[in-house]
Every structure is written in structure tokens, then in C-alpha cells.
């Protein structure tokens, strides 16, 4: 019997849904293969999240609490996770794929001499390791990739698995942690543009994404209006984040965020492969573009060929009516 350890990421005082998706999947795999599933929370008030975590079937929850974890910094996080791994001795350690995860995955694998499969869209056990599906070549192709070893790290794209509650009584294990200033290899000076109350794109049920076709403030206003009635997050293509129109943290695509909401509305986005790589797993895709030959229409479930300035106002009005 081996241990599947799941990392529970905390953002803005909440557990990230994508972490619970991974935990749900690990619980299912553990049940099928006779393994146990455990979880780890590294956060200033980690123990306040243990109740929610045990709803998803973790039999043991490790907590590492320290004010230093308020903002992501790789040195303390690596130290904490190495300490938990020493104690939990997991066969598989699974993460939701976030920027925070990407920042430490390679270093943790090197530190623990573990095999590592980053950013997968599915994984399962084989006889002597795990096999994962990884999107490669700008997400045009799936690579079936195997990892072998005594310890395997894996990170999973958000939206890959459904949430599945499976309540248990978890044993909570608090891990002592301290860190001297001197141990901090890198220092965080400041956070420049925390997006504050905007909706986290990795967690959003709906996303309205703006592209080059959104040319001015009037266009941005339409995007905001549409996002507001749908309670959607706002995303953008690289063209608009580079131009400084939208915050870089809103960029969707191979370079930016990979998202998979229930509803993705691409407005004025042509659909370059780098953008499509970041949103092709959305459940329902709507595209608005005046160029009928734009490649975005190849992936859209509903393609509206038209000028966004003429299409969006009645579209917004109609959705308002439906939502009543």
C-alpha cells in the first residue's frame, strides 16, 4: 500500500478548486488500487482548511503554518514540501498546475530525486509507475508519457477532473516549520499588480476573452459588461496584454494561462495556435469575429461572424433577458 499525497493550494483565503479536482482524482485512484490518499496544506492558516479537505477523502492532512507563506516564495515552499515528503514518503505527489507549482516542480524533483510529469491532463497507475497524457506541440498532440521511480511528482491542468466528495475523518498532522531570514535565498520585494477582486481564470466557470478586434475603450466596456452578467472572468490574447490593455496575468494561451471553463467566449480573437492551446479544452466555445475565415471558428461550437461592436450589444441584452 502506497501513499498518494495531494497538494492543496490556497489563494485569496480559499482552497483552489483545481486542487480539489486533483484530490478527487487521487481518492478515486487510491480506492481502485488499494492505496491511501493524503493531503498537504502550506499556508499561514493551514489548519482552517482541513475540514474542507477531508470532505474529499484525504485520510491524513499535513499542515505547515507560517506567516511566510502568505505570498508565494520558492525557498520556504520547497523547504516545507521536502519536510512533508520526508514524513509522508509518498509514492505519488500530485499538484494542481499553477504558476506557484511551476515555480517549484523541477527543483522539488531534483531535490527529492523524483520522477516528474508536469502539466498533465490525465494520469493513472501502471504496473511500475504512472502514465500521463501531456499536451505537446502547442497542445496539438497528446504525448502518453510514463514515469518510473520510488517517488513521482505530477501536476494536473485545471478542469481535468470533476469534483467528487467522499467524506472521511482525517488525521491532522501539523509539521513544525521555521525559517531564518538568512535561509531565504530570494526575497520578495513587492507584489505589483495583484488582480484584487477579479476572478481567477483557472477557477472561472465562464470566461470572456478579448483579442485584437477589441480596439478601444468602448470595446473593453462591452467585454466588461458581458463578463459581468455572466459572472465571468476576463481574459485576453497576447496581443492585448502586450499592448498593455489588459493585465499580463489575464493572458490566455501557451505562454499564459491554460483554462478550461464551462463557457469561453472569444471576442475579436483570430485563434492563433498559441491561443487555442490555452483554451481548447473549454466545454462550450463561442467566437465572435468579423473574419469568417478566422481559425477560431474551427474550434468554436457557436461562431458568430460579425462586427463585435454590433454583435455584443444585442447579445448582452438577450442574455440579460434570459437571466431575467
Amino acid at each position: 500500500m502506497s501513499t498518494l499525497l495531494t497538494h492543496i493550494a490556497i489563494s485569496d483565503g480559499k482552497i483552489k478548486r483545481s486542487s480539489l479536482e486533483v484530490l478527487s482524482h487521487c481518492k478515486q485512484l487510491a480506492d481502485q488500487n488499494g492505496h491511501t490518499v493524503e493531503a498537504v496544506i502550506v499556508a499561514p492558516e493551514a489548519s482552517s482548511f482541513t475540514d474542507e479537505v477531508q470532505k474529499y477523502g484525504a485520510s491524513k492532512v499535513y499542515t505547515v503554518e507560517d506567516p511566510i507563506f502568505k505570498n508565494h516564495m520558492n525557498t520556504p515552499v520547497l523547504k516545507a514540501l521536502a519536510k512533508v515528503m520526508e514524513q509522508a514518503n509518498p509514492y505519488v505527489f500530485a499538484f494542481a498546475s499553477t504558476e506557484g507549482t511551476k515555480d517549484i516542480m523541477g527543483a522539488l524533483a531534483a531535490n527529492q530525486q523524483a520522477a516528474v510529469l508536469p502539466d498533465v491532463s490525465a494520469f493513472k497507475f501502471t504496473d511500475d509507475g504512472i502514465q500521463a497524457k501531456r499536451p505537446v506541440m502547442a497542445a496539438k498532440i497528446m504525448a502518453n508519457t510514463e514515469a518510473k521511480g520510488d517517488t513521482i511528482l505530477v501536476s494536473v491542468r485545471s478542469g481535468s477532473y470533476d469534483l467528487n466528495e467522499s467524506p472521511t475523518e482525517a488525521e491532522v498532522v501539523n509539521i513544525d516549520f521555521s525559517m531564518d531570514e538568512g535561509e531565504l535565498k530570494a526575497t520578495l520585494r513587492e507584489i505589483i499588480s495583484a488582480s484584487g477582486d477579479t476572478i481567477d481564470l483557472n477557477e472561472a466557470e465562464a470566461i470572456v476573452a478579448a483579442g485584437r478586434g477589441v480596439k478601444d475603450e468602448e470595446g473593453q466596456k462591452l467585454i466588461s459588461e458581458l463578463a459581468e452578467i455572466l459572472n465571468a472572468g476576463i481574459g485576453a490574447s497576447r496581443a492585448l496584454t502586450e499592448a498593455g490593455v489588459y493585465d499580463p496575468s489575464l493572458q490566455i494561451g501557451q505562454t499564459g494561462k491554460v483554462v478550461s471553463p464551462q463557457l469561453y467566449i472569444a471576442v475579436g480573437i483570430s485563434g492563433a495556435i498559441q491561443h487555442v492551446a490555452g483554451m481548447a479544452n473549454s466545454k462550450v466555445i463561442v467566437a465572435v469575429n468579423k473574419d469568417a475565415d478566422a481559425p477560431i471558428f474551427d474550434v468554436a461550437d457557436y461562431g458568430i461572424v460579425g462586427d463585435l461592436y454590433k454583435v455584443l450589444p444585442p447579445f448582452i441584452e438577450e442574455i440579460k433577458k434570459i437571466k431575467g
Partner: peptide, 16 residues
């Protein structure tokens, strides 16, 4: 001094 893109914002990180 590195400006890095984090999950929700940009972070200024100082490295020796």
C-alpha cells in the same frame, strides 16, 4: 531584480 508573472499578480523578486 526579477519581475515575475505569478498566479494573480506580478512579483518583484530580488536575487543575489
Amino acid at each position: 531584480i526579477v519581475k515575475r508573472q505569478g498566479d494573480t499578480g506580478q512579483e518583484m523578486i530580488e536575487l543575489p
